[in-house]
């Protein structure tokens, strides 16, 4: 039996579409609720980010509870940055008990890039070990080897960076993530298909589903900012130039156009198993992208 609705869809062979919502800083969840309602029936699952870019926000677990309450299928993003193994295990037990059964295991950005630069980073585990730990919980034991009263079952995923300029060490880690139990991968932003194609030629030997990350750019400035400030983001100059060519005030429209074109090409060429759309604060345009891409 599938561990979650999302796992069922992953295994169904259909082209998967996921998106994400970023919780707000504060307790007013109205915008996030609006985004969840807007997206929950248009995607196969909805990620909730975990203090993205190390900026303190409402927690991903809280966002996933809202997704669940509103009838969506959540993917809990969990980073190793802020919680030691006790806290990670406990959060996962809570998540499962409330029907949150998909987890994306991430290292987490460094605290130095965020808004609490003086915080003590944790990194008790790394993302590979987090995946492995979840499989241990599923076996009915915690990391201390103690019996659990009721074991959770999760569909687990991780991230991979097919366009990394030094790809070899990234692939070493990718294989470790597969060995540790990852079932699906969300890639870092994909802008040109060559690196994705190369990566898929290599990755197809593993029994995992790859979802290409699509970051929706709103302007050339945003792309440049992300290149300079967001770890793991590499927007090629050709994409920046294309964004810059947009008429004043039409940057987002151009960004949507690029996203739609990329998704269509990925789907038509059957390059990977689906897409993960990251709208970074502009979640309201995601339905338009999904529709225009014919998903």
């Amino acid at each position: 039996m599938a561990k979650s609705l999302f796992e069922e869809k992953l295994n169904s062979g259909k082209f998967i579409v996921t998106a994400e919502v970023g919780p707000q800083k504060g307790v007013d969840c109205s915008e996030m609720i609006h985004h969840i309602k807007l997206l929950k029936d248009k995607v196969d699952a909805l990620n909730v980010t975990d203090h993205q870019s190390s900026v303190m926000r409402f927690p991903s677990l809280g966002g996933c509870l809202l997704v669940k309450e509103l009838g969506g299928e959540p993917i809990l993003q969990v980073t190793c940055r802020d919680r030691n193994r006790l806290a990670l295990e406990a959060d996962l037990l809570l998540a499962y008990s409330r029907g949150i059964c998909n987890v994306l295991c991430l290292t987490g950005d460094s605290v130095d890039v965020g808004d609490h630069k003086e915080a003590k980073p944790v990194f008790d585990l790394d993302s590979v070990q987090l995946l492995r730990m979840i499989r241990t919980l599923e076996s009915g034991k915690d990391m201390g080897g103690n019996d659990l009263k009721g074991a959770p079952q999760f569909c687990i995923g991780a991230s991979v960076h097919p366009a990394a300029d030094r790809i070899e060490p990234q692939l070493v880690k990718f294989e470790k993530k597969v060995a540790a139990g990852a079932q699906f991968f969300q890639t870092q932003g994909i802008y040109e298909l060559d690196s994705l194609r190369r990566f898929m030629q290599y990755a197809s030997q593993f029994d995992v589903k790859i979802l290409a990350g699509i970051i929706v750019m709103a302007s050339a400035r945003m792309a440049q900012y992300m290149n300079e400030n967001v770890p793991g983001v590499i927007v090629p100059q050709s994409v920046i130039d294309e964004l810059a060519s947009a008429e004043k005030g039409k940057g987002l429209q151009k960004g949507i156009e690029i996203a739609v074109r990329t998704i269509k090409a990925i789907k038509e060429q059957n390059l990977c198993h689906g897409v993960h759309i990251m709208a970074v604060g502009r979640e309201s345009v995601v339905p338009e992208i999904i529709e225009a891409a014919g998903l």
Partner: peptide, 14 residues
Amino acid sequence: AKNLLNGPCGGSQN
């Protein structure tokens, strides 16, 4: 910076 044990994070560039 993250004392990772199983390989680089996605933030490793060049």
